[in-house]
Structure formats: C-alpha cells, structure tokens
C-alpha cells in the first residue's frame, strides 16, 4: 500500500505535477504512512531522479524548478505532520546568496533538497550582507550554513562571512558549505569553508555523511 503511495509521490515530482503531488501526500496522511518516510521514499526519490536527469543534460533548469514546485506542494502537507519529537534533533540550516549577487536558482534548489532532507531551513534570500548572515548564525544557533554565488567579484563575501564567524566565535559550531560555478574545492579550503558542493544533491549527501 505505502509502496504505491511512494511511487505516486515520486512520479508527481518527476512529471512536475503539483496537484498530483498534493493529492498523493494527502493519501499518505490518510493511510497513516509515516510522513518522514513519505518524504524520503517518495518526494526525495523523485527529486533525485530530476537531479540525475539534469546532471546528465536530459532536462533543462526550468524543468527542475517546476519539479521542485511539485515537490513543495507535497511537502507543505507532509512537513507539518511530522511528530514534534522527530524534529527535536533536526539540524538548523541557513541558505543564502551572498551580497552583490542575485542569482538564486541554485540556492533555491539547495534549500529544497535540504528541506526534503529533514533540515529546518532558514532561507535568507539573495544579496545578503556578511554581517546579516553572521548575525543569523549567532542569534539562531544555525548548525549548517550554505552560501552561493554565481559571479567572481562576489566570492570575496564568502570569505568575509567566514571571517566574521571566526571573529564572533561561531565558526566552530557551524558547518559551512559553499557552491556556485566560480567556486572550487581549493577555494573552499582557502577561505576556510568545510565543503564545496557540486550541486544540491552533493550538498545534502555530503552533509548527511558528516
């Protein structure tokens, strides 16, 4: 029974059908399926297929975004149904595009994958100054910070943000990953980030392995 629902959820995402995703999520709740399982075995599986297809150049970015939209339709129903105690040890993540840059598609996909991965995500949006990011990490006790940028001149703000975390004394409590085309693993190492994500899936997989 639940296998069927999982497949419906996954297919809804793969076929970019928000209404089907919503319906399947409702069906899962009515059938008493564990919402965390429904997310992982259904929605995330579908999203992974989309991710793979995108990586293999089989589909275009807009399709990824519509698929993400479909996933959110299901998530909106399933997330609130997760029992509170299951969320107690969920980690807090923050996502942002650093100051000077407004390209947030990649960041939004990371946010989606993190949410699906069971993290409580605080999305700070785009063009976010280092001080704002650092203050959020400090004040909200963020465990994972994911920063993104598409352009070269704004990469420096990733370093500035990490420098602020060091000055504040919060760097040690927070895992920092970065992403975006101009970044590289060596850049991550140079500025003191923990990981450079190749893509959203890579980000979540790496975090889960930590």
């Amino acid at each position: 029974m639940s296998e069927e629902i999982f497949e419906e959820l996954a297919n809804a995402v793969i076929n970019c059908k928000a209404d089907l995703s919503k319906a399947a999520a409702q069906k899962a709740l009515d059938a008493g399926v564990n919402p965390v399982e429904a997310i992982n075995e259904g929605l995330v599986k579908g999203m992974n297929v989309i991710g793979d297809k995108y990586a293999a150049h089989q589909i275009y970015l807009p399709q990824v975004l519509v698929a993400a939209h479909a996933m959110y339709a299901g998530l909106d129903l399933l997330l609130p149904a997760i029992p509170k105690e299951d969320l107690a040890d969920a980690k807090k993540a923050a996502t942002c595009v650093v100051e000077g840059d407004v390209h947030d598609i990649g960041k939004n996909i990371v946010k989606t994958m993190l949410t699906a991965g069971g993290y409580i995500v605080n999305d700070l949006g785009k063009d976010v100054p280092p001080a704002t990011i650092a203050d959020t990490v400090k004040n909200e006790g963020i465990d994972i910070l994911c920063m993104s940028t598409l352009m070269t001149p704004t990469m420096d703000n990733m370093k500035n943000t990490i420098d602020l975390l060091k000055e504040q004394g919060t760097r040690g409590n927070c895992t920092v990953t970065i992403g975006g085309p101009p970044t590289s693993p060596s850049f991550a190492e140079e500025i003191g980030a923990d990981h450079r994500d190749n893509n959203a899936q890579d980000c979540v997989n790496w975090l889960k392995g930590q």
Partner: peptide
C-alpha cells in the same frame, strides 16, 4: 599570497 582558482578554469585571482 592567497590566490584562488576560479571554477574549473586555470585562471586564479588574488584574494
């Protein structure tokens, strides 16, 4: 000097 490579390219810039 702290320089970083951009993306997969070979160019690097001074930080």
């Amino acid at each position: 000097d702290h320089k970083y490579a951009i993306g997969a390219g070979e160019s690097s810039v001074l930080m």
